[in-house]
Design a protein around this nucleic acid. Structure first.
Lengths: 228, 228
DNA sequence: GCAAAAGTGTTGTGACTACACCCATGG
DNA sequence: CCATGGGTGTAGTCACAACACTTTTGC
């Protein structure tokens, strides 16, 4: 019934990796090496091969296209975002792209260089294909999940100070939060718990030494808020 | 391993259409006509063609596989759910499937026959491929969106009584809700608004005639609840 | 009048906001 | 001892669950 041959859409993946450093939300982009849009910054992406999962393809895109360290992708947090269709145009033919959302803690300098500051311009007509829309969707998902999951832990080391966590939230949501209530809310929700007092006050100029906290072990989807 | 030639995954769509009738949540299934799993009930799905969008493919699957009326798919609400990978095995080779979630109001008898009651067994080892997991994901999405969007309107006609709406919520969430508070909450959220008093009391045996309500026009994503 | 269903009001509880205040450290 | 942050307490407001009560119909 169906026409045989190569009359099928090409399946690809694109990856949006966010990171927070120096109080700013940043996104991983690479400069395209081939046409179309050669030289333009874009989300890393590859065509999916028959013998790899979508998530594997996403990690491969980071290594092959963006120069991510070959060992590092393994422990990077990634989740599927959505599948994009229609706007895509490519000389190779019709392409459907499964987008992935990745979150990375601040890392070594060579990796940090891959990230671009998420300024107001980015994501509004500045990226090729439909990457603007993918980026927009990724940011919306990230902001949504901050509210009711422990996903922000992916931006930080195992143990962290509450003020570090608050900076992450403020960078992602792009507005300032009340210090006291931020603290109380996350603690009462059971999202984070105190680990131990900070012994090493690294390069502080004063002030009471903070405690260290960690996100609760389980992948908290924070108790589906009841509807009535 | 894989036959040479088509060294790319096959792209397919599967559709989960829910409906509520007689106080029960139901899902559209069809009996497969070909191997594998010939004769077993399954979600309707087709391979995506180069010249159609994913959503078009999803609507085509309903018409071709499930016998959905050819004119009706146009106004059926559908949204993309997620893309499934890995578990899928098919003689034609590696397949990646983009799942769609559809919501249908109660309709004519021939269409109603396509729906299966969502009993406790369904979705737990009873469907072929990874359709159990797709169904589970669809239900979770539907329940989530009930809480903060006007999506439930897709199950009902333009104007409806509040008790009808409550039955929809109860069927989907699978628990009973407090009549008074259900009413107050949806009204205060601004999700629904009164249209006019009901003139025709169709076959009622008594009681005060209800008002008619409608969902607020816009696709209310109900004001992103602020985080602090 | 009485049952039945729709619609309204009331009260207690708990969450969130916006503060003021106390604590522990470096210089 | 004071500047600098970390940590705790509190009062007002608002949303919400539970439930009693009133309204409007059919019979």
């Amino acid at each position: 019934m169906e026409p045989a041959g190569l009359e099928r859409p090409i399946l690809a993946v694109d990856v949006v990796v966010f990171s927070v450093s120096r109080g700013r939300l940043r996104v991983l982009l690479h400069r395209r090496g081939q046409d179309p849009f050669s030289g333009a910054p874009a989300l890393p992406g590859v065509a999916v091969q028959v013998d790899e999962t979508l998530e594997d393809a996403a990690r491969r895109a980071l290594a092959v296209k963006a120069g991510w360290p070959p060992d590092a992708p393994e422990d990077l947090y990634v989740e599927q975002l959505a599948t994009f269709d229609g706007l895509y145009r490519d000389p190779r033919g019709r392409t459907v792209s499964v987008a992935y959302l990745g979150l990375s803690p601040a890392r070594s300098a060579p990796v940090r260089k891959l990230f671009w500051e998420l300024a107001d311009g980015l994501g509004r007509g500045s990226l090729p294909f439909d990457h603007d829309r993918i980026l927009e969707t990724a940011l919306a998902r990230l902001r949504g999940k901050l509210r009711y999951t422990n996903i922000a832990g992916q931006f930080l080391p195992e143990a962290f100070r509450i003020d570090e966590l608050q900076k992450v939230y403020e960078a992602v949501l792009h507005r300032s939060l009340n210090r006291t209530n931020f603290r109380n809310k996350l603690l009462k929700l059971g999202l984070i718990e105190q680990v131990r007092a900070l012994s090493e006050a690294v390069g502080k100029k004063g002030g009471r030494p903070p405690h260290l906290y960690a996100f609760a072990r389980e992948e908290v989807e924070a108790a589906d808020r009841d509807f009535l």
